[in-house]
Design a binder for these strands. Structure first.
Lengths: 189, 189
DNA sequence: GCATTGTTGCACACCAGTGTGCAATGACGT
DNA sequence: ACGTCATTGCACACTGGTGTGCAACAATGC
């Protein structure tokens, strides 16, 4: 069934989020299914992880392109990106762990286009003097969005509290002044 | 020999830095020794990792207490900490990967005291209005020093360039205004 | 020469996870 | 009632890493 396949994917995201080293058996039983069934849908562990990653990347890319429309200032675009990303960031936190480890190469490759988009946005902000230039855009974008996921990983992830904090923190490290960062994040001091 | 033991530890830090999932065999051959010899010094893989972590923690704790002397402003103390930490940060980057995974509990426990010290420093800065309060000190300190390691991990780690960038970035996300952050990142102990 | 100590080179048992093969079972629509 | 299809429950082979036991060997110091 397609329904089973989708449930496996959903559950796998959960289980791997808890423990990136979880085995096919763990995922299977968490999905209320037998290990053999998982192999029926995904020939190998890498297939599962790859599918999962593709799902995440396309979703996050959609979020980014939605936030980064023409005419939007880079810092506002970033704030919008984080705000929209937040609801799913916690679910996709496993990606950070997955980049290292066995399938690092594959995952890294799939995330490449998204990384490029982010770096582009940051570069645009640096050119427009709204972002600081103490780091190359490729590195700064990675560190900033790594911070977002780190915050999403950390307990108080649920609610607008976390979203606000993540937006402010990432904007700050991008070089946006605190007053503007707070304003963009949607709240007040 | 004690010399062999030390060499194994040094090399292990290197090898595990490259690949946190490297086996005892990889470490052994990288140290120019046989796998059996490693087990002669460290009864189990966990022993090796634990010893390594203790080494790192004590070294980093020394660096922090050296930078965070009484009378030092919190932001200056943080800048000094990053400056002194930088030379070894790249070597110890494996710790970030080690916190997750098999020995996560153990490692996390060993890092606990250091985390507490860092959180204390950040809390002091927040009380003194030099750090922003958009995140609780325990989280903010982790995210900030995670960013330092992320930058250390990222290629351009060598040289004062990276040290400066890491200091500025972490200070920015702590809420220090850009001008002051740049000034603090320039002056080393 | 002798004893001690660290290292080596096997061999071995063990475990956990991966991936496959195949027959049996059950639900489904027609 | 029939065929189809997903799922199940085993059994199996294979891999890669861990940790141990033991005899042999080399260097060191007495």
């Amino acid at each position: 069934m397609n329904e089973t396949r989708d449930r496996i994917l959903d559950v796998a995201l959960d289980v791997l989020g808890e423990d990136p080293d979880a085995g096919m058996g763990d995922i299977a039983s968490a999905a209320g299914v037998v290990r053999r069934t998982v192999y029926g849908h995904f020939p190998s562990r890498l297939d599962l992880v790859r599918t999962l990653t593709q799902r995440a990347v396309s979703e996050m890319t959609a979020v980014l392109t939605q936030a980064d429309t023409a005419g939007t200032e880079a810092d506002a675009a970033w704030a919008g990106f984080v705000a929209r990303l937040w609801p799913v960031a916690h679910r996709y936190r496993v990606l950070l762990a997955l980049r290292r480890g066995e399938y690092g190469e594959t995952i890294h490759g799939l995330l490449g286009p998204l990384d490029a988009l982010l770096a582009g946005l940051v570069a645009r902000g640096q050119d427009g003097e709204v972002f600081a230039g103490h780091l190359p855009a490729s590195v700064l974008s990675q560190v900033a969005y790594g911070a977002v996921f780190a915050i999403a990983d950390s307990d108080l992830s649920n609610g607008a509290e976390g979203a606000r904090a993540a937006a402010i923190t990432s904007l700050l490290m991008l070089g946006v002044p605190e007053a503007r960062a707070v304003a963009l994040a949607g709240g007040w001091p």
